[in-house]
Nucleic acid binder design. Sequence first.
DNA 1: GCCAACGTTGGC
DNA 2: GCCAACGTTGGC
Length: 156
Amino acid sequence: MQYWLFKCEPSVYSIDDLARDKKTSWEGVRNYQARNFLRDQVKKGDLVFFYHSNAEPPGIFGIAEVVREAYADHFALDPKHKYYDPKSSKDEPIWYMVDVGFVRKFEHPVTLAMLKDAPELDDMMVTKRGTRLSIQPVKKSEWETVLKLAGEKLRV
DNA sequence: GCCAACGTTGGC
DNA sequence: GCCAACGTTGGC
């Protein structure tokens, strides 16, 4: 059982959209390092911080749960889609996606500024400038620290 | 909207 | 394989 942080621009898809839909596919990851995490390490039952990027304010807005492990990202095969990648094919998909379900929206989101202020989170990728990975592993201690900052119970 | 920090592409 | 040009991310 592992913890993750998934980034998304709320103008594209937000925690509120997930709360409404209950479940969504997490497609469009087009970075190899993030792809490797998604394909090889993200497992069913893992818990995910839902991070709003390019937002005001940026930060962690809630929790999702992985409900389906990696499968081929078929949006890469559609020439009309913005996630199209001509190098990908049905037989040899390059890109993968997972499905996540809604768990909880934080009553008090943990903003990026709060994450940066917490010394326990100095090693967290999202707090380091220049880290643009959209799928990031989160340590158990970091997970618990963020929940405390959010004023949330540790048990999900 | 700006721009720094990356990742990717492609000529050589 | 190098590296300049270009595209993207994402905070501010």
